[in-house]
Structure formats: structure tokens, C-alpha cells
Amino acid sequence: MTALSYAVTDSATMLRRNLRHALRYPSLTLSTSGMPIIFLLLFVYVFGGELGAGLPEGVGYVDYVVPGILLMTAGAGAVGTAIAICSDITAGIVDRFRTMAISPSALLTGHVLGSVVQAVLNLLIVIGVALLIGFRPAAGPLEWAAAGGLMVLLTLAITWVSVALGVISKNPEAASNVVLPFQLLPILSSTFVPTSSMPTAVRWFAEYQPFAPMINTLRGLLTGGPIGNDGIIAVAWCLGITLAGYLWARRVYNRPR
């Protein structure tokens, strides 16, 4: 077998381990979709009436808010990933892996793939809830496929960064704390309200931070609005963050100690 096929086999083994953990504690996986769902219900039923008034004519607030909520969902597993990686390292099992002739990044890849599988599951749950409370996307199969691809790309990007953060964290609590800001980033954008209502400085940040083009793209794909350059920019952000996160994670994981 070649090094590549070793890497694939070992990553698959680590993915099975990760999914077994997830199956053993399903509540942990499912509770990840809890926060986005609470935000969804809160904004649609509590703030939505007022916020919806600021939207252009004919746009329902549910349809406006769901794309951003989906991006929050894609990133919601990041804390869990960072904690899992950090726990593995601090618990000593990683030292065992390191003394075995296995592909060096298999553990990380296994965690990332496991997180993506769980994120897809959570996304399906949140989409289900959204449909139940009146989300009516205009997307056809092609748009859904593109939207799904973007969400998976985003999950990959966030997960690789949180893996690196998990590796460098001293303990699982610290890991959880450093990753949390990532989950709040979508809020500082057009997720809940159009940016036009914000003060200049906040508005500038909200329009140019990485999540902004992603939200616009997803909104465009699902509800049929204009996307423009945002699609390319969103994909570029995702790929760039994924690559940087991957290289960073590999570096800190394999650095000599």
C-alpha cells in the first residue's frame, strides 16, 4: 500500500472511532443544533414581527433569517470538535497513536470528517424545523446542491481551525473558550437584520467579514435574490480558511515536543 492509501485507511478508522463516540452520546450531537434552533424560534416569533418590518416589500422574515441560521449551524459543532481533540491529547491516547506507525494526520482528519457528518445531520434538522415554521425556499435542486456544497465547505473551514485551536489548548475548558467567538461571528453580520440599519463602523465589519458573503450567497441561492461576486468570494474565503486551518493544525500537531 502507498502512503496515500495508508492515510485513507487510517483516517477512515479514526472517523469510525469519532462516529462511535457520537453515537454513544447522541444527545451531545443533537444538542449542537439546539442553539441555532433557539435563535431561529426567538428571532422569528419574538423579534421577527418588528425586524421584518425593515425588510424590502414581499420578503418574509423567516426566509430572510434562515440562511444565516444555517451558517450558524454549520459552525455550531466547532466547540465540540476542539474539546474532543484537546481531550484526546490531554488524556494520553494521542501519545499511544504517535508511537504507532499510522498516518500522522489521520486522527485530525478523522475528527474533521466526523464533525462534517454531524454538521450535515444538524443542518438537516434545522432545515426541517425551518420548513415547519414556514420557511419557503425558492431554490431548485441545483441551488440546493450549491447551497449544500457551500455549507459543507464552511463546516470544513471552521472545523480545521477549531482542530488547530483544540491542539494548542492546554485543557478542554480552554479549548471551548477560544472557539466560542467563531460561533458568534455570524451574528455580527446581516444574519438577523440588514446591515443598512447599523452604525458605520459595525456596518463596515458586518459587510466585509467572511460570513457576510456566505450569508448573501446562501440567501441568494435559497430565496432567489442576487448573488453577484459574493459566491466567488464566499468560496474563496472557505477554501482559504480551510487550507490555513489544515496547515496550522498539522503543524501544531506534528511539531516536536
Binding site: 478508522t13 494520553g92 508511537t99
Partner: peptide, 27 residues
């Protein structure tokens, strides 16, 4: 084969699953 000072078993797997994980990593 290495057995470190602090046990390196996967707490969230059963004993048998731990051994099968090792077997899989040895391909």
C-alpha cells in the same frame, strides 16, 4: 509497543472496541 505511565485507553469505547481500534490501526 508502548504502555505509558498514564493509561492511554479510549474511555468512550468498550474494552473490545479499544482493541479493535488498535487492530484497525495496525491494518
Amino acid at each position: 509497543g508502548v504502555t505509558g505511565q498514564f493509561s492511554a485507553v479510549d474511555d468512550k469505547l468498550t474494552g473490545r472496541e479499544n482493541l479493535i481500534l488498535m487492530a484497525d490501526l495496525h491494518r
